[in-house]
């Protein structure tokens, strides 16, 4: 919406009100995109942690003794029964049983998907940021002009 507006009328010829509205809008969009970016970043780190945990699990021998967390502060002793099958949460309440390599592959795929989304978003966000900055500069200039002329 904002970019089509900017394309139709050059920034220099907009009124102060229009510029203010445009600036507000683009600031909002920049913030939204930044939020999305940070969300993607946290999701990626979580998947990386999951991937590392899978790798760790695959290295352990059968019957390995370990402590399993039931809550954040309660651990019970257990032995590793099967390190070759994992249950993957794919979202909306569905879990899929996968073999270890398949599980690792799933994590890899998800991380790659997020990375490509991240790169796309970074591009869009930087474009929006330049629009917002330009609008801000022109708006400041206009306000200064108004102040000096009156």
């Amino acid at each position: 919406m904002a970019s089509s507006k900017g394309g139709a009328i050059p920034l220099e010829r907009m009124s102060v009100e229009q510029l203010k509205a445009l600036k507000e809008q683009s600031d909002l969009e920049v913030n939204l995109l930044q939020d999305s970016l940070s969300n993607i970043r946290t999701a990626t780190t979580r998947l990386e942690i999951a991937s590392a945990a899978l790798h760790d699990l695959s290295l352990r021998p059968h019957g390995n003794k370990m402590l399993v967390p039931l809550t954040a502060s309660l651990y019970v002793p257990a032995t590793l029964h099967d390190a070759h099958h994992v249950l993957v949460d794919v979202g909306t309440g569905y879990f899929i049983e996968k073999t270890m390599p398949e599980g690792k592959d799933y994590c890899e795929r998800k991380i790659n998907l997020l990375k490509s989304n991240f790169d796309q978003l970074v591009e869009v966000a930087s474009k929006k940021k330049t629009v917002a900055d330009e609008t801000g500069v022109v708006l400041q200039a206009k306000l200064k002009q108004l102040a000096s002329s009156s």
Partner: peptide, 13 residues
């Protein structure tokens, strides 16, 4: 994800 699975895969809800 479901499309990628083989016929005999175990799915839980």
């Amino acid at each position: 994800e479901l499309d990628l699975l083989r016929e005999d895969a175990n799915v839980y809800k």
